[in-house]
């Protein structure tokens, strides 16, 4: 394999990995964000406590979260086929990634929203805020730094899952690492993919934290 071919291979893998990670993160938030809000709102100490909804939703989320990612991905192959028409390649991998990550995202959103100071919520209520206003105008903005940290962690976790999907021809850097490093004993290429994954995670982590620091309006004592 020439250097050019190698670069093309790795470049293609990197693009696929980024594609899977970003689309999956986006879709996970699309589903997980409202679920996390429902968990918070229906909690015993929430704005509209509802034990039945809270318990049922919590149970489904815990169930999905307790299945290891690879097993979940294999188990839902029929569902993946039904949605995308195939179970291999990066687009197909997005399905199990979202199914695995959305419950995880929901829990992270819940924990971020729960951190909002009860006194601040009470102040908002004393001013005549409706439950909806408390949630969207107070809790979400107040939880913003924590939500952004959560998003950073979620993105890097999803990236890790996407690499795992290489075992089932999921595309991206994970597949390259499995195909060359595991099946063909080509350690060199495997190490390149690992190095690339490390770099991507570092960049995402730093970018996420940088963004959080910039947007957090609390100033730490210097």
């Amino acid at each position: 394999m020439t250097t050019l071919e190698l670069l093309q291979l790795l470049g293609q893998g990197l693009l696929e990995t980024l594609y899977m990670t970003l689309i999956s993160t986006f879709l996970s938030y699309l589903i997980g964000l409202p679920l996390g809000m429902i968990l918070t709102v229906t909690d015993k100490k929430g704005l509209r406590p509802n034990r039945a909804i809270n318990l049922a939703l919590g149970f489904v989320i815990n169930m999905l979260r307790s299945v290891p990612f690879l097993i979940l991905a294999v188990a839902i192959i029929p569902f993946t086929r039904w949605i995308v028409g195939t179970s291999i390649g990066s687009t197909a991998t997005i399905v199990p990634l979202v199914v695995a990550a959305a419950p995880y995202v929901a829990r992270m959103i819940e924990s971020s929203l729960r951190e909002v100071d009860a006194g601040v919520i009470e102040a908002a209520r004393s001013m005549g805020s409706s439950d909806r206003q408390v949630l969207f105008k107070v809790m979400v903005p107040e939880a913003k730094p924590s939500l952004l940290v959560g998003a950073t962690i979620a993105t890097t976790t999803i990236l890790g899952y996407s690499a795992m999907a290489g075992f089932m021809a999921g595309g991206g850097l994970g597949t390259i690492a499995i195909n060359y490093g595991y099946h063909r004993y080509n350690t060199e290429i495997m190490l390149y993919t690992v190095a690339l994954l490390i770099i991507v995670v570092q960049v995402m982590q730093e970018a996420g934290l940088h963004l959080t620091r910039r947007l957090d309006r609390r100033r730490r004592a210097e």
Binding site: V120, E122, M127, E142
Partner: peptide, 27 residues
């Protein structure tokens, strides 16, 4: 009606992610 009854607290309970003027604008 709560808009006709202001309330202040021991721990101030200001919105941490809003500036002073944005806090006052909230109600």
């Amino acid at each position: 009606l709560r808009q006709s009854m202001g309330m202040i607290f021991q721990s101030f309970n200001l919105f941490q992610q809003r500036s002073a003027i944005e806090n006052i604008c909230y109600p």
